[in-house]
Structure formats: C-alpha cells, structure tokens
Write a protein that binds this DNA or RNA. Structure first.
Lengths: 309, 309
DNA sequence: GATCTGCGATAGGATTTGCGAATGGCTTCG
DNA sequence: CGAAGCCATTCGCAAATCCTATCGCAGATC
C-alpha cells in the first residue's frame, strides 16, 4: 500500500512543479521527497514525473494519480479531524435511547439546545417502554447513552443524571387535597387514574403500590402520561406521576408525598463515558427536569427527601 | 499526519470487532495493530475504541473517524490503480494537439479506435493552424503529444509517426494529367487552387513553392483542405495536397511528383514518450494514413522516394 | 566560451518507525 | 479452579525514513 507520505509528496510536487520546492513546502529535505517519489514509482511501476533540468512535470500517469492522492490526503486529515471533534464534543454522532416518558420533559429541550450549539453533532434517539429492550440496545452496542429511571442491574456502568419527584394530583376539593402532603398509605382505596399497559409508567406504578401494600381503585387508564394529571384534576380521582408530567396551570391540587418520593434518572453507558457522551450527560444534569413555576409553588413546605418504599 | 496503516487498522478493527481478528485480517500480529491504534489515538487525542474483555467496540469518536478512514484507503488504492492503468496504457488521460489538417485523416480514426478499445483513456484534442502556437502547448506542458508535419526545432524530442505523399490533382484533360508524373517545375505558371490563410497548408505550400522558385497562378483559395482536389478536378486548375486530402472516387487525375514528394508527420513530446503516449503514437504509426484504393491505383509507377526541395 | 546557478540523483550514516515473539493481566467459560 | 480468548506492554531486530554531503547536468550569465 502506498504510504500517505508518498502521496503528499506527489501532490506537493504537482503543485510546485519542483521537488526542491515541494520539499520546502513539506518541511522536509529534497532527497527525502525524491526518495518518496521513487518509491511511489516503484509501486506503480510507472514514471509519474518527468525529470527536467528546470524542475519536474507530471506524466499522464502522474496526473491520473494526483487527483485521488489529494482525495486520500484530505480524507485522512478529515478522519482525524472528525475524531478530534468528537473527542472535544464539538462533532461526531451520539446515539441515544430513553424510556418513552422521558423524551418530552428531559431529552427534547437538551437535544434542541445541542442542535443549535453543536450543529456538527448528529444526535439520534430511540425510545421504548420496555426496560429489557432498552438495556439490550446497550448490550448490542447500538446506543451510546441510555436514559432510564434507576436502578438497573449492577453489571452496567451508570451515571446519575438527575432526580425527579413523584407527586400526587387531585381535584381541588378532593379529600387528599386538604392535606399539606400525603403518604403512600393514603392511596389505599382512592380512585386512581392509571396508565395503559403500553405506557412504561404502568408497570412501575403497579410495582410501587404493591410493594407499599396499598390498593387503590383504578377508574381508568390512559396511554398519554401528561393526560393523567389532567384527568385527575378534572374530577376523576387522583393521579401519581413524575412531576414532569404535570403541565403548568393545572386546575387542581398538587401534593408531595411524605416522605418525599424521588425517582432517580440515570444514564447507562457501555463502559466509561467517552467525552462526547459525558458532556451530554452533564448537559442533562445541569438542566435537570424543568418544573413550571406555579407547579413548584404548590409544593412549598415539606423538606426531608427520601424514598417511600 | 496519520499513517494509512493506522487507518487500515482502525477500519479492520471496526469491521471485525476485535484487534486480534483485525490483525489476522491484515496479515499482521496483534501487538502491531494495537500499537497502530494507540498511535492513532495519540494523534487524535481521543479514545477511538473501547477495550472490553470480549473484543473492542468503537467509541463515537471512532465511528466518526472510520468513515473517512475508509475513504482515504480507497482513494489511495485508487491513486496507484489509476497510475498503473496509465502506465500500461489502459487508462488515464492523454492530451493531444495537432495541426488542423491532420484531424480527419489521421487522428479521428485512431481516437475512435481507442475510445472503443480503451474506454478508460480520456483523450482530449486541441487543434491549431499556427505552428508556433502548437509548439507553445508543448512548452507550457498543456499537451502530451503534438502531431505536426516535420521538421520542427531541434530542441524538441520528436518521434517519426508516418509519412504521407504530396500529390497533384488536376482535371482529366489537363496538360499535366497526360504525364505519368510531374516535377515541381511543371507548376510554374499553372492555375492553382490554393488555400485560405486560415488553413495551415496555405503557408506551407507558399514556402514550398518559393523555395523551388516556381510561381503558379492562384485562381482561388479554399479553407477546406479536402475541397481543393475536388475544385481542381472540376476544372479550375490543379491542386497540391497531401494525399489524405484526396477522397475516393475523385473525378480527375492524381499524379505523384518526381522525385516523390514526401511529408513527414512527427509526434512532438515533452521529454521521452511515456508508455501511454508511446502506445498512442504506435497506433498512429501502424495505421498510417488511410489512402483509398482507387486513389492509390492512380499512383502506380514511379519508385524512388525523395524530397523535392 | 568559461563560469555560475539551480535542480535532481546518489551515497552513507544516524534516527525513527514498524514489526514480531514473549509475557502478563484480565475476563469468561467449562 | 483451570483453560481459553483478548488486549497491553516489553524487548530486540530489521526496515524504512530522513538528513548531510556530494555529484552530474543543463541553462543562464557575463
């Protein structure tokens, strides 16, 4: 295989019309360039340049080679340039996957930011509601970062991204709306706006309730996460959702659990985070989960964080 | 600059998912590949692969690099392939120039042959009637082969291609048509179908006549070389042209000069002929100037070749 | 017409690079 | 717990690369 160095020499000679000047251009010596050209001619088994007393000219064979030689040099330079760009997180491609419920509240704004700030970074996103499927994407190296509610199996390397609170939504005149905060046990027997089976929160909510030993009464199921608080506030009952699912101006009551019910959101990656992925996770962390001001206002008082299970 | 070898290693590793297998694929040893990758990572200042116990995976940076790495390898291979093709005359580009009058009779058929036989060879052709301009194309390296009637200045390297006879054309009942062959002196005072100034043969013919001290009477001038014999045969007078300008079935007499008047056609090239050019010149030589059978038949007798000046 | 100048090829020696065998650490599999 | 697979590292050697110096050649110069 021809060495890139030799092709560089050929191009430089083609551009300068002289081996000596080409050497200067390449910060090398004249015999070195001469030697490289000789090697290239040995490989192609053809004269590429015509030696003349006043410099050199390309032969037809040399002309034929020099075009692709330029291409090769440019492509090689581009390869390391792209790699370097990916290294300092200003370029490259990033393949994301996340639990469906996180797309709107977490990923979308950050992805939009990145598209604006680093247009050279190509971000792709896959979603799923099935945890096993998501982790499979990591195993099969189809994805660089996976965002899911934690925890996951120990064998994956994870990075905590942020946390979001689980809150209760109810009509303003609901019994539970009168309390400053509620406990999980308060949910026993209440009418609950649940999630449809194709929504990832469905299984998660069932597991959480079962673990706590409370049995609410499911009055309906919705596939749309953000619809649950709306339906609850409309009078159907109560809803239990991540706070990100509560939209601003909700006409109902929003209450924290006591103790606070926090869901960890983690980034799963194959091996250590590479620079590009690390920077993206940092972006996610610092931005966190956006909570509308008026929603936050309803959750003023109770302090001690913790997990209810 | 990244070496091609390193890029090859990256590609092989990307394809095989393992350094060891990549080494096998490259007919190399595992440490060699490992070393090349390390060098590449040193240059890009980024991890390109993720070392895992069960082989390696590309990092986003590695993915970003591998595409252009492939391009670079392919382009480099293509460069030597093209050069080699030009070397054995099966590819490349050939820039021709010729005296206008030679295009139809000499070049066109051979170019057509080459287009059919070596479609990979791109042939370009420039024409001119001004000898100085043509030789300038050689000087400025704009042309690989120049085809002109000889001789030219000693400082050019030339290759004889073929020769063509200069013949006289006249109406069948013309005085000169009664002779088996004519001499240059016979042209003194005859009515001559001459060439327009933009035809290269014009100056040549004038010089030839002046040198011989004969002064025919110009009855008309045409720009179209092949028209001169036609006009002469039609009764206007006589014409003096290369035999290639005489088309088949001409309704008139065609006579050799005595001694034979031969015009050398030579190929001028910058320096020695490279393989592609050499082969083309050979094609020109072996094909020679096509003379229609019936035209040749009229030139039966006289033998001794020579030049009249 | 003798000399000078610029260019490319060649020779020789120092340096660098590239490579392969051997080794060790690590993980997974049986 | 041993075997096997994979990668990094070390070490020594061979080859390629490069540089300095020199030669040969053909125009350019005066």
């Amino acid at each position: 295989m021809a060495s890139l160095r030799a092709l560089e020499c050929l191009v430089a000679v083609a551009d300068s019309g002289s081996i000596t000047q080409a050497a200067r251009m390449l910060h090398s010596s004249q015999p070195a360039v001469s030697h490289q050209l000789a090697a290239l001619e040995r490989e192609t088994r053809t004269a590429l340049i015509r030696r003349e007393p006043r410099g050199v000219k390309l032969t037809p064979a040399g002309r034929a080679a020099v075009t692709d030689a330029r291409r090769a040099i440019e492509a090689a330079a581009s390869a390391v340039r792209l790699a370097r760009a990916a290294g300092d997180a200003t370029g490259g491609s990033l393949r994301l996957a996340c639990a469906q419920s996180l797309t709107v509240s977490m990923l979308a704004p950050v992805i939009r930011d990145w598209h604006r700030r680093y247009p050279q970074v190509a971000i792709s996103l896959r979603e799923s509601a099935v945890p096993g499927e998501l982790l499979g994407l990591i195993d099969s190296d189809e994805v660089d970062i996976l965002l899911v509610p934690g925890p996951v199996s120990e064998r994956y390397t994870t990075t905590p991204v942020t946390e979001e609170e689980i809150v209760l939504t109810a009509p303003g005149n609901h019994r539970l709306a009168q309390l400053p905060s509620v406990t999980l046990n308060d949910l026993d027997g209440v009418q609950l706006v649940h999630f449809a089976a194709d929504n990832g929160l469905s299984g998660w909510l069932d597991r959480s309730l079962t673990r706590a030993g409370v049995r609410p009464e499911t009055v309906m199921r919705t596939s749309v996460t953000a619809a649950a608080p709306q339906l609850a506030a409309a009078g159907l009952g109560v809803a239990v959702t991540p706070i990100s699912a509560v939209s601003a101006g909700l006409p109902g009551a929003i209450r924290s659990f006591s103790p606070r019910w926090i869901r960890q959101l983690i980034a799963v990656s194959p091996g250590a985070l590479d620079p590009l992925a690390a920077r993206f996770v940092t972006s996610l962390s610092t931005r966190g989960v956006r909570v509308p001001r008026d929603v936050k206002a309803q959750l003023s008082d109770s302090d001690a964080p913790g997990s209810p299970k």
